[in-house]
Structures are given as structure tokens and as C-alpha cells.
Design a protein around this nucleic acid. Sequence first.
DNA 1: AAATGTGGCAACCGCCTGCTA
DNA 2: TTAGCAGGCGGTTGCCACATT
Length: 329
Amino acid sequence: MGRTPCCDKNGLKKGPWTPDEDQKLIQYIQVHGPGNWRNLPKNAGLQRCGKSCRLRWTNYLRPDIRRGRFSFEEEETIIQLHSVLGNKWSAIAERLPGRTDNEIKNYWNTHIRKRLLRMGIDPVTHSPRLDFLDFSLLFNSTQLNLSSLLGLQALVNPEIFKLANSILLSQTHENQELSLQNQNSQGPELLLQKLQQNQLLHNQSSIFQHNDQLHNQISKIPNYTPQNVSSSSSQSIQGNMGSYLMNGQAFHENVISLQNYSYSASEVSENSTIQSLNNNNNNNNQNSQNFNFDTPLSGTEEEKESYCSNFNSFMKFEIPESLDFDDLL
DNA sequence: AAATGTGGCAACCGCCTGCTA
DNA sequence: TTAGCAGGCGGTTGCCACATT
């Protein structure tokens, strides 16, 4: 039944390929083509598994492979495709001629992913991580109408303003310093526990009147299943919780605009320098919805990092768990 | 100069799907 | 029909080069 094994793994060489092995593989494929990886090593005189040969050829020896640093255009394409396709590296590679799925995957994990995290953007959901928002900055912005922010125009409840103000007062410095590692260590179950705690507030403040909708939001998260706990799921939930809990029209629009964080070729210009978010903090006339979150298309890693830090300083946010809403309301 | 830490990347591992005998 | 393999794929590992102490 079935096919015979492709190779006997015993006695086959593993590890880095030597130039001699590469040459043998190249010469064989140039003559016979890359088909039938099962018999290829034997016919080519290689002490390798067919799988290893295929990997070496497709990821390194193929003549149409384009090596070297990724351009900003390629990087932009990767981010955009990843936001649609997820970790489908082969699908992404199909749209980047000369790049292999392995190369794109490595580049994502070593460069893009880290940068997005530093920007306070969830590399899985491509949404801003609300756990990095600095609530005080939002409230300190006189251009942000608080009632609009909270979606409470119809309520206009002064208690809500007391609540918001108390959040500000209760926010401790160490809470702002929550590390990324701590965030990643939180599993979906823990977040759901927190959500259930929030549910206690449901009957006490209309600010959280849509908690049921939040449950629905979470249940719709594609990659989340309670049995399959992972940090990425955690991040996914956090992002959705954040955008929901704020639930204000104005803020929601900001969240949407933040998703357009990637840099586009159409915006390459000398004006595409970093729009300092610190300036926004200092300039009360700056409308919060006009923040420019586009990173410069052309620039150094340092420029990117500078942008990230500015973005991050704006996006820090934490509501202290110890806050007693009963006392406030 | 040596020891240690860190980041990047090639290659391996193991799972999944479709195919074949 | 089905057991089992090939190929494809994403996740992970481990080596190496470079940076830092």
C-alpha cells in the first residue's frame, strides 16, 4: 500500500550545505529539472534527503532568487499582504517575485514583527494594542470631547466624568511601565476573567452597557479558540477589547485610521518625515484625528525606531484593576 | 584580548493535504 | 477504500557573526 519511503534517513547528511553539494544539486537540476525530489539526491550523487534538496533549491539555489535587503516597497507589500493572508508565507511569497517564503518569514520575525510591537501594533491582528494607549494623553487633549470619546452623548452623565477623572488619578506610573512580556503572558482565559469582572460593572455604569457585544466580538475573533491558548490570541482579544471598551465614535474612527499605519509609496516625499506625536501633545489645536501615523517610506532604521517610540509614547494605556468603581459611582 | 550577549538566518522538524498503489 | 508516502508549509532551532562588556 502507498508509496515507498522517499529516502532512508539513516546515513544521510544534515546541516549546512557545502559548495560542492550545492554545485552537484545545481548541475543536476540544470540538466534534469527540479522534479522528483525522491530520486534526485541519489541521481545527483548527494547524501541528502530529497526534502533537504528541495528546501536548499527553493530557498537558496534557485536562479531567480533575489537576495539582499528588503526594499521599503517590499516591506510594505509584506505588511499589507500579512494583514490579509496572515502567516501564509508561501502565498505572500507568490506576490513578491524572487523572494522565498522562508526569507519573508525570517524577515517578518526578525524585523517587521518587532517593529510593529514597538509601535504598539499587534502583528497578528494589525490593530493597535489598547494596552499601550496612554489614557492620560487622550484625556489631556482638549480637542478630544470626552463625551464623544466615550460615545455617551445621549447620557451626558457627570458620573462618567468622575469615573474618567478617577482613572487618571489612579493610574500609577508602574502600570504605565507594563512590559510587553507581561502582556504576552496573559492568555485569553485570563482576559476573559477580566472581562467577567468587567461584567460586574455592567449593572453599575452604562459606560459598559455593551459588554455583551464585546463577548460577541471576541467570539468572532478568527484565531481564537479557548482550547488553543496562545499569546497571539491574547493579543487579538486585547485589541478587540480595547476598541470595544472605548466604544466612542471619535475614538473608534481613530482606531480605524491607525490601521493605516503602513507606509505607502504615494506618500514618499520630503514631507514624509516623522510627524512628531509629541508635537500633538503640545499643540492643542491639533485635531487628534489628524495624527499622521505614516512612517517615512525612505529612511533609516533609526528613523523608523524614532517613529516607533513616538507612536508608542502616545499609545500607552492602562486602567488599573484595583480601581473601585463602586466608590466612584 | 577574551568572555558573554544578541540578532539574523539557514536549515530542520513535524504537521497537513492530496495523491497513489 | 484506505494506508501511507511526497510535497508543501509554518514553526522552531541552532549556528555564526557581530556587538558589548
